[in-house]
Simulated assay, not measured.
Amino acid sequence: MTIPFVKAGYWSSTSQFAVGSIESSHFTHLFCAFAELNAETFEVSFPTPTMLDFKTFTQTVQRRNPDVRTLLSIGGPVSNPSIFASMASQAGGRKIFINSSIKLARTNNFHGLDLSWLYPSTADESRHLGELLKEWHDAIVDDAKGIGKPQLLLTAQVFYSPRRYSYPDAPIISHSLDWVNVLAYDFYSPSNSPNQTGAHSALRSKGEQPSVETGINAWIESGVEKTKLVLGLPFYGCAWLLADKNINEISSPAKGAPPSYPTGTIGYNQIKNFIARDQHTKVKFDTGTETHYCYDHTICISYDDTKSIIKKVEYAKEKELHGYFAWHVGYDSNWILSETAARGGV
């Protein structure tokens, strides 16, 4: 039996990108991110400023693609991981969280749930996460039987490699989750590598340096089935201020993020504008990491363009992974990357 290839994308509620503008025909699954976890009650809820977007998310994206499946993602990079740790450490807390997440998904017509706990960091947190996933999976099975509807999907975001943070044993992950979304990016950024540029989402690298390949291999070696792995594609780049305008390749001296992009993050749509605004801006493809970079006289940006996106989707298929996801759809430029990835994943 052939497992359908997942072509997913995340919509971020903080992106100011309208849900109604998502070209959902390029995707099999869309994640609505992020729902919030209450620190006191452990109930899941929608963020107040974008509550209507969450409530109507499925209805809205299915206008262009009635077959697209939606998942509600909980947590995210700005959430407090200690709240997830506290919830997961208590049987009662886990039950409240699970029941409220299922109710919220069902009430608002989502087809699944996604956990973005970034990240469990101790052996106890790993064990509690395992308990949470098993109980969540069982509750989803019972829910489907009880109401006579298809089971909700259950997924989770994970670090690019299992060797950095604490995760449950592979059998728990494989049994409890439909798949895991591997965050295969931000290997190098101005926040973790302020003094040197780097390939923030290298497909390949030398030795054990961070890359898609080393991370995926590590997950497979840990025992997680390759058909449970979905590869993350960044629709954004990382920007550095060059220390020397004449030294501008990958691994060049840098001085942190440039003032024009203070977080160091720059969407693909902004990168296209950055390249177009100055005829002297150079665009290069780094064969060692199989990613793109561009630079002018002061800034260097590491990013993925169509060539590297195609290579990553081809890699996912060759490795017999479950598919790919994009972070996030609002960063795309005229759906260039979304369409390229979707064609490559046929």
Rank of each mutant, 00 (worst) to 15 (best):
E290V: 04
F34D: 04
T289I: 04
R69K: 15
K226G: 05
I3P: 05
I173D: 05
P162V: 00
H297R: 14
P171M: 08
V180Y: 09
F34R: 08
V19S: 02
T155V: 15
Y324V: 11
S21L: 12
Y236W: 06
S191W: 12
K55E: 15
L104S: 07
V141N: 13
S12R: 15
S193G: 00
K7H: 01
Y324E: 04
L152Q: 08
G20N: 13
L242P: 01
P49Q: 05
G344A: 02
Y10V: 05
I98L: 10
Q59V: 09
T2M: 10
T14R: 15
H111Q: 12
G76N: 04
R204M: 15
L113Y: 10
F5C: 00
Y324S: 01
D304K: 01
E36M: 10
T58L: 01
G93E: 04
K317H: 05
K272H: 06
L177M: 05
E339A: 15
G288E: 14
H29R: 12
L118N: 11
E40Q: 15
T340D: 05
G207W: 07
G20M: 08
T107M: 12
T70C: 04
L154K: 02
T2D: 13
G76M: 03
V230G: 07
F17V: 04
I22Y: 02
H175Y: 13
D332Q: 03
G207I: 07
N38C: 09
G92M: 01
I173G: 06
N248A: 11
F274H: 09
T281D: 02
S24P: 11
P49D: 04
K228V: 03
F84P: 05
C32W: 07
H128M: 07
L231K: 02
Y315R: 00
F34V: 08
K282E: 14
G92S: 01
H26L: 06
F235G: 11
T291Q: 09
S89K: 09
F235T: 06
L183S: 12
V78M: 13
A156H: 11
L154R: 02
F325E: 05
G237I: 00
T107E: 15
N80M: 07
D53G: 00
L37V: 09
S302H: 10
R63M: 13
T122N: 02
D278N: 14
V19N: 04
